[in-house]
Structure formats: C-alpha cells, structure tokens
Design a protein around this nucleic acid. Structure first.
Length: 627
DNA sequence: TTGTGTACTTAGCAGTTTTAAA
DNA sequence: TTTAAAACTGCTAAGTACACAA
C-alpha cells in the first residue's frame, strides 16, 4: 500500500484565522478507492468528528483556615495565586526531585512571578519557607481518600464514570469511540526525566482560551465553559486530534486524542506492522548493502552504513538532534558522541569489542559490549580519530539523511521500522525456540477462542472444567515461555524499569518460603526412607500410609520446583519492563497465532485494555500467521 | 541545506484496583 | 478480615518523522 502523506494542506498551526479555518482534505480524488486505503492515501483521517471538548481541571480550592504557610517562622496568609503554587510544591515535599537544586531554583523563580508585589518583597529566600503544614494537609487528604468507606468510594467511582460518559467519548464516522485523555492536564511543577534543566518550573493551568477545538463543521460544536471562549474552532480532517493547546514549559503542543482501542488508532497500528513486515522481504538485501558500504571510499556512506548496522543489530533509536540546554542530555544513534564509545581490540576473550555507554530516551542508561566485524571496528576507529570526547561520532550524518536513504531502499522505511521489525521477529523466533518440546495443553476449542470471542460477541457460556495439575503446569510453563520471549525483546530494546521498592523484601520472603519447603521435602524424604527400610525388613506390599507419604513427597517436590521457577522469573524480571515492547513493538498477531496454536487462553497474555487495543488483530491472525 | 513547527508514537512511573496470602 | 503483592490504568514526558520556509 502506498502512503503518500500528500501534505496538500499547510500544516502551520498558528496564525490561522478564527472560524473560517476548514481544511477538509480532498474527497473526490480517489473516490474509486474504499475505506482505509483511501483514507491513508489522502491522509484523510475522518469524515465526521463530534465531541464535547476537554474536561477542565476544577478551579483551585483554597487551603482551610487551620493550614498555614510560614515564612521565617511566622505564618503568612498568601494570595490565592501564590498559595496555589505553594501547594503544588508542598505536595511534592517528600519526593526526591523536590530536593534538587535546579528544581528548587526553577520553582522559586516561577513562584515569585505569581506573588503580589508585597509577597515578593517579603518572600526572598526559599530556605526560609516552611511548607510542612501544607504537606501534612495533603498527605492526610490522600490517606482519608484511601480509607473512605466502601459506599463513598463507590459513589466517587460512579461520578468518575458519569464524567467519562459525558466527556470521554466522541463520534467518529458514525462510531462512538473512546477518547484517550479527555481531561486537560492540571497545573503542576514540571517533572522532567533525568537531569532536566527545567524541572520545578510551573506548568500553568490550561484555559479554554488556550484550546483549539477540531471537529467537523456540521457537528455539534462543543461549548466552552460559561464565560469563556475557545482559542479557535477548526475542522481539519487530516489530523487525529480533537483538541490541542500549547504547553508553557517546552512550548510544544498537547493533544486530546483517541483511545488506543479506537478503530482509527487500530488501523494506524496495523499499518505500522505491515510496513515492518515488508522490511522482512528486503532486509537481507539492505544488510548486504550496508556491509558492502563499510568499505566505501566515501566517509558519509561509511558512517551511514555503520549507523544503520547499529540501528539494525542493537535496535538503537535514530537519535534526532536536540536543542542544547532545553532538555536532559540524551542521545540516540545519530547523536552519539565520541565519549559514548569505547573500543577494545581485545576484551573478554573476544576481538573487536565495542562498548556503548550513554543515556537514551527518558535518561535510561544504555550500556552494552558487543563484538563487531573487523571493518566496523576499523571504521569506528577512523570516525573517532582527531575528535574530542564531545564531538559527534557520526558527524557526516543526520537523521533526515539517514531516513532519506532508507526511503530509497523501501517505501515507507524509516529507522524506527527496524526496531519494530527486529522486536517482532525476535518474539516469533523466541516463541518457536522456547515452546518447542512443551506438552500441549489439552483445552477445549471454546476455551481457546474464549478470549478472542470476548471482543466481538457476548461472552459464551460453557462449563468451566478445572484443568488437571499437569495441564495447569503446562499452561504455566507456556506463559512463562511467552514472558521469556517478551523479555528477550525488552532487553533488545533496552526497556528498563526501576527496581520495585519492595523487591528486596518480597524476594527475601520468597527465599524464606523456599527454605521452608526444602525442609519439608527433606523431612518427607526421611520419613519415606524409614518406611522403605521397614518394608525391606518386614516384606509384604506397600501400605496405604506408604503410598500417601509417597504422594505427599511428590507434591512437595513439585511445589518446590514451582517456587524456584517463580524466584528465577522474579529475579530475571526485576529491572526489565515488559509492557512497552508488548504495547508498541510486538505485532499482536504473532501472540494471537501462538495462543491459538498452543491452546493458551488469550487473557493469559493480554489483559482487558490490551485486548481492546489489539482488537484490529483478532480477525487478522489464524494459528498459522507468520510475521 | 538547515531550522522550525506540528503531529504522532513510545516511554516509565505512580496511583489505584484486584488478587493472593497470612 | 487484614495485609501484601501483583496487575492494571492513567498520566504526561520524550522521543521520531516529516512538511515547509528561509
């Protein structure tokens, strides 16, 4: 399928006059084409879009009388605006980011802007400010919410549901679709990731006057809150967003968009994986070419070939250039600097070892040692010659030129397609390897399809048959195998998470359990040995009690094995985030096909929202689907 | 060719809810 | 019944990529 992204229409966001903006992309041009294909070719995303606009954060509620802010030991009654910002800081007192100097400096500067002249004159030093009462107040509020009686919690839940029903859906081309984020972001103190120079800055309240509404001309135009106006109402059916505003920290847009379960999002997702599947057909040719290019006399070509090799082999991100000082210092492939690379002629008994050590997206550290081909190694040596640590490794390369090259190799090919492709291929291969030799789980056909049917049909009623222990174990093994395959991809893509705060404690508990179980096994073994010895001396047949003991030992051993399995899984997983790959990189059709083939109920792999997200894939994958 | 603006995907974390264990 | 752990969800930051202007 050809993706043209015609760009017939100017995409400039600002300076568009109010009211008369209407950018409905050409309707007739490809009238002979139907549905999605036509939409994609015209970059038309919808024909009809109707919604209620965003739900705005409720107005600030001043502190109760008993809660004070102190300056220099004396209580100070702040103006409403200054108090609101003070509470934002007070709420965060216990967080690590609030202790950082940059955070405090940025906060204090922005806070002072909200103060009255008088307040500004008085409050000149943050270290003389005391937010403890404010902090305590919000902690107590959180606690009170947590311990609310069941009925009150139920009532709150119902109110949230009512809001969801009113603002959380739109009509898109005749279908009622769920919206992803129908609320504007509340004011707060910006928390960047890693060493962010803007942490602590005030993210201001979004007002209707900031918001651009996007909907069809003939729809019910959403009403702004009483006494307010929209910044603009437009009708641009080449984009997917329903509303947008400019955020004041980085001056970038925030959008109200559809939920991933929507048809349109699903179609985009499907398209993404189809592009990755097309790469499969040409990847060998591309690999052969970049390998040949390692010998090119042209420096630019060699840099491109080595960069592409990294992107392919190590699943690095492309690494767009970033504005210095505006964000944390993170890099990807094209923005790697000399200081991120170490070359070892020999290391760990291997030749030509490259060590990469840098902060990637979200300031997650990428630290990896890999053996590379001699030519790659020599090229890297050359690229690093006569450069300072802070110089770009691939100085002759930009992400745009890299992608332009990729476009010439395959239509629609960009650097990130390699990540999708390699992730999905890895899952498929790992599943093949890890599931080989596992006993089949004897399930009914209905059971196999149950999760799938959840989607489109009301849940069928059937007798629930308790699977045997053996079958249960087999299923557990399969799910474990799936998680291992998933984990292989997460490691490839460097999807890390912070070690859970409770990890050590819960691991210790698990070890304790293992020890207890071990002792039980030993005890049972001793008892059984005694009975065996008895049997040998006295002769005769095995007593009922003997058989019972034998059974018990077997059971204990199985339980011990399960605990060991659990501990291994927990340890292997403590720093790996599985969700990101599952949601963004793994073609769901691979998982669905695998579930069908091995009789694993789909809900063991995808929970409810994930099944909703991948609705598009359920009728597009039978058990023989190959990525 | 480079810089800027826009729109979309990808990402980890924290809070909430559900489930399992004590 | 209470508590702890696991599962899930929402939030929003931080990437990629491309069009267009200078």
């Amino acid at each position: 399928m050809r993706l043209l992204w015609l760009g017939v229409l100017s995409r400039r966001f600002q300076h568009v006059p109010l009211r008369d903006t209407c950018r409905q992309a050409s309707r007739g041009a490809k009238a002979n084409k139907a549905g999605w294909e036509e939409k994609v070719e015209n970059s038309v995303k919808w024909r009809q879009l109707e919604h209620k606009g965003p739900y705005f954060t409720p107005a600030y509620e001043p502190l109760p009388d008993g809660v004070h802010f102190f300056y220099d030991g004396k209580p100070v009654k702040l103006s409403v605006a200054a108090e609101e910002v003070a509470t934002l800081y007070g709420k965060m007192l216990h967080l690590e980011c609030a202790t950082k100097e940059v955070f405090q400096r940025n906060f204090f500067r922005d806070w002072r802007k909200e103060m009255t002249a008088e307040e500004r004159k008085l409050i000149t030093h943050l270290d003389k400010c005391d937010f403890v009462e404010i902090h305590k107040h919000f902690m107590e509020k959180t606690e009170a919410r947590r311990t609310l009686p069941r009925e009150k919690k139920q009532k709150l839940k119902e109110e949230a549901e009512k809001l969801q029903q009113e603002f959380g859906y739109c009509i898109l081309d005749g279908h009622r679709e769920k919206i992803g984020n129908f609320k504007t972001e509340p004011p707060g103190l910006f928390r960047g990731r890693g060493d962010h120079p803007k942490m602590g800055m005030l993210k201001r309240r979004v007002m209707p006057e900031d918001v651009v509404i996007n909907c069809s001309r003939d729809s019910k135009i959403p009403k702004p809150p009483a006494g307010h106006q929209w910044k603009e109402v437009r009708s641009d059916n080449t984009v997917m967003w329903l509303a947008a505003w400019m955020e004041n920290i980085q001056n970038t847009f925030k959008y109200i968009i559809l939920n991933p379960s929507s048809k349109l999002k699903g179609e985009m997702d499907w398209h993404k994986y189809e592009v990755a599947r097309r790469l499969r057909g040409v990847v060998n040719k591309i690999r052969a070419q970049y390998q040949a290019d390692w010998k090119s006399p042209e420096m630019k070509k060699r840099q491109l070939a080595v960069a592409l090799y990294f992107i392919d082999k190590l699943a690095l991100r492309t690494g767009n250039e970033k504005e210095e000082g505006e964000t944390a210092d993170t890099v990807g492939c094209c923005s790697l600097r000399v200081e991120h690379v170490r070359l070892h002629g020999k290391a760990d008994g291997q030749e030509h070892v490259v060590e990469l050590d840098f902060l990637g997206k979200d300031s997650i550290r990428y630290n990896n040692r890999v053996t590379v081909e001699k030519l790659v190694f020599q090229n890297l040596q050359h690229f690093m010659e006569d450069k300072d640590p802070g110089d770009n490794l691939f100085d002759a390369l930009t992400t745009a030129s890299l992608n332009k090259h990729l476009q010439s190799l395959m239509e629609g090919l960009t650097a990130r397609v390699f990540r999708t492709y390699n992730a999905s291929v890895t899952l498929q291969e790992q599943l093949r390897v890890l599931t080989r030799g596992l006993p089949d789980y004897p399930v009914q056909k209905e059971m196999v399809e149950s999760g799938i049917a959840l989607w489109f049909l009301p849940l069928p009623q059937w007798d629930i048959v308790q699977p045997t222990q053996e079958a249960e174990d087999s299923l557990t093994s399969k799910v474990l195998a799936y998680n291992r395959a998933n984990r292989a991809v997460a490691i490839l893509c460097n999807h890390q998470r912070a070690i859970p705060k409770t990890f050590e404690k819960s691991m210790q508990k698990l070890q304790q359990k293992i020890e207890t179980k071990k002792a039980q096994v030993t005890e049972a073994q001793v008892e059984l040995e005694k009975l065996k010895a008895d049997l040998r001396t006295r002769g005769g047949s095995k007593s009922k009690s003997f058989l019972r003991k034998q059974q018990r030992l077997l059971k204990l051993e199985e339980q011990l094995a399960r605990l060991h399995k659990k501990a291994t899984d927990k340890e292997e997983n403590k720093q790996v985030a599985l969700g990101t790959a599952k949601l963004n990189y793994l073609d769901p059709r691979i998982s669905i096909a695998w579930c069908k083939r091995f009789g694993v109920p789909i809900e063991k792999i995808y929970h409810k929202t994930q099944r909703e997200r991948f609705a598009w894939a359920f009728n597009r994958a039978d058990k023989d689907f190959e990525f």
